[in-house]
């Protein structure tokens, strides 16, 4: 197992590349999901505010 992670002495290079890819490609959809939620909530809040005005 540790031999696999060592990558024949190139572990640092291989896992730094893979790690950054994994990090950014998980971060992007998560950020978009959070943004989506808060946008929908804001729209609902605005709707309620307008409804209470009338």
């Amino acid at each position: 197992m540790s031999e696999f992670f060592a990558m024949g002495g190139y572990g640092f290079y291989v896992w730094s590349s893979m790690g950054m890819v994994l990090f950014l490609m998980l971060l992007e959809p998560i950020v978009l999901k959070i943004q989506h939620r808060s946008l929908l909530k804001n729209i609902q809040r605005q709707k309620r505010r307008q409804a209470s005005k009338h």
Binding site: M7, G8, G9, Y10, Y13, V14, S17
Partner: peptide
């Protein structure tokens, strides 16, 4: 080439 070629997949 040694095992660092595996970077190629994502690169």
């Amino acid at each position: 080439q040694k095992q660092y070629y595996r970077i190629i997949y994502v690169h």
